[in-house]
Write a protein that binds this DNA or RNA. Structure first.
Lengths: 341, 341
DNA sequence: AGTTAGCACTCATAGCAGTAGAGTGCTAAC
DNA sequence: GTTAGCACTCTACTGCTATGAGTGCTAACT
């Protein structure tokens, strides 16, 4: 059967109405909200066709119709257009991002908070894990007589720091030696090459100096482990409490899933920019939710993702418009931050 | 009316049974669980007395009894004893704390995660805000040709860092000047003295050099603002989803309250080590919850709090025992970290 | 051929007894 | 002071009915 323009319009209107009300849409209210006038009987015939095409579901015989996952898919792929952010919204988003704009480490936190704030849903951001980035350099800062901080800087602009303690007095000279030794053997190497084995090799090649550096080496390995970890930030999980479709077991399933960042990370990284409606994600915990994923690029290279998790019934055009803008802002900001270096 | 030993024992047993079942306790099951044998009629008389004393509530006429807030209060103040952690539990807690033990910045995060992990409730930790701590020193690290990181170290052992960008090439000499100027005017001063006004004064006193330092000054002020902010970490909020008493509106109220860290911070800081049962906290969002607060000390001085939020029906002796141990561990670890410096 | 009015049919929901069972409070005996 | 016995209360559950929203179908209309 063919999806005539009138059927398209009806599907769109059902999705619009269902998005705001959350209730199945009946033929009567539907034909009151159409921008052309036909009787409810005609609308019923069309709805019956759309249901036969698998675009609408019916909770039970005497209920109205609800868009099916497939219906949403057609709507998103063919019918809707992203709604670009207005200048006001742009200013609003920029203002929310500003406080974290100067620190790559904090930026993705700020983005998650911003995204959760403007969408009132759960927001997730990821940065590329160290598995793809390189070591830009290692820095040392003395923090007290016998403690110092090692800072690992990566090519993606992120920094990881750790404090370590030595059983001897540190001097600027010693730290300069640390700096030279560490940067000579590490700068330019992929972060993933800092393995315990490599650390041992480094230690071995230093001879006696290794004893002095053991705590620094251990601290460095800690930062590398952190850098290798998938970097996932979330915010606004509690926003999901306010959607009637997220209830009890359903909600618990979702929250439990979100508490395993590695899995979330993998889902987002391999997805590409797209919308997962309900069961499309293949994650059973998310079967009643939608996940909108948008990759952002730094220097033209795919660098990470921002994503929003919410009920299937959400305002996709608006959300996708906002996320498009936010993703480009983040990419631009990170590119600037890296170019500064 | 007097709280005879038998009444005490009955109250304790009711609380024990109610803690595991969550159901009102009737006279029949109660007398099966008492360690002395009396008939259910006797128990009924005693329960009736306890209800008259305000220690038990009755949801409705034909239901069993439930401990009242006042009943819990008496139980906690007079009847129960904290259950010290077993050596196994001690090892378990230590193992959970270990990964974050070496970085004061991350320790309180780790403590919140640990506490949520062992209690299966929501955990909160606070550190003293910068309003009471002093500036131990300021450090600068070059991160690229034109960017550097300023690190504010406080007397409480916490560090706050921010990256800043200059429109000229940075050299080690310039950073040494920064270091000298900043430490001369700031070291030893309370963190709260770094106000925008003071920053301006600093700039003014530098003459031309102020132009070079403006971005560093701005970054410093950012770190100071962060250091002044109440430092509240939470974890395990989603654990609350699994308690039947936290439902719908109730749960949303609590989550909404937890999303305002400043209020939570104030509640914990002014409370002292204690248990707030239901409405005792004075926070209406927490009227159906209990909050167990424990202060920890660093170098013998009150330094911050750890707290657990959960249903009123919780295992207080066990929880308080665990928290006593955890608070002393945290205090000890922070004291060590500070003494190292 | 497409559209519409009319009507029978379906099904969820709310409301209303009636019943079973848990638990109490009271009384009288021990 | 303790206990057995019993009437009383109240909730939770079940089955029933009425209601109404909404559909699907048919026949008439344009």
């Amino acid at each position: 059967m063919e999806l005539t323009p009138r059927k398209q319009k009806i599907l769109e209107t059902i999705i619009d109405l269902y998005t705001v009300s959350g209730e199945p849409v009946g033929s009567k209210v539907l034909c009151e909200n159409l921008d052309f006038s036909v009787s409810s009987a005609t609308v019923r015939n069309e709805m019956s066709d759309l249901a036969a095409m698998g675009l609408l579901d019916q909770p039970h015989t005497s209920a109205g119709r609800v868009p099916s996952e497939h219906g949403y898919r057609i709507y998103i792929d063919e019918l809707m257009k992203p709604l670009p952010v207005t200048p006001e919204e742009r200013h609003f988003i920029d203002a929310l991002l500003l406080p974290s704009a100067y620190d790559p480490e904090k930026l993705l936190d700020g983005v998650a908070r911003t995204l959760a704030g403007i969408t009132h849903m759960a927001a997730i951001t990821t940065t590329p894990s160290g598995s793809v980035s390189k070591i830009a350099g290692v820095q040392f800062v003395q923090t007290s007589r016998r403690t110092a901080m090692v800072i690992l800087m990566t090519s993606s602009g992120t920094m990881y720091s750790r404090v370590f303690h030595c059983n001897f007095e540190l001097t600027p000279e010693i730290l300069r030696v640390f700096f030279r030794v560490f940067n000579e053997s590490l700068a330019g190497k992929p972060v993933r090459s800092i393995t315990p084995a490599y650390i041992q090799t480094m230690g071995a090649s230093m001879g006696e100096a290794a004893l002095l550096m053991s705590s620094a080496l251990a601290a460095l390995q800690d930062t590398a482990r952190e850098a290798m970890g998938s970097d996932v930030r979330m915010d606004g999980q509690t926003n999901l409490l306010f959607f009637p479709e997220f209830h009890e077991a359903n909600l618990r399933r979702i929250m439990r899933y979100l508490s395993r960042p590695q899995e979330v990370y993998q889902l987002l990284e391999r997805a590409g920019s797209r919308v997962y409606i309900g069961r499309e994600s293949g994650v059973s915990a998310l079967r009643d939710a939608s996940l909108v994923i948008k990759h952002y690029a730094v220097r033209g290279q795919d660098a990470g993702t921002i994503a929003v998790l919410g009920p299937v019934r959400m305002n996709y055009p608006k959300l996708i418009g906002s996320m498009d803008y936010l993703a480009s802002s983040v990419g631009r900001m990170l590119t600037e931050l890296i170019n500064l270096q």
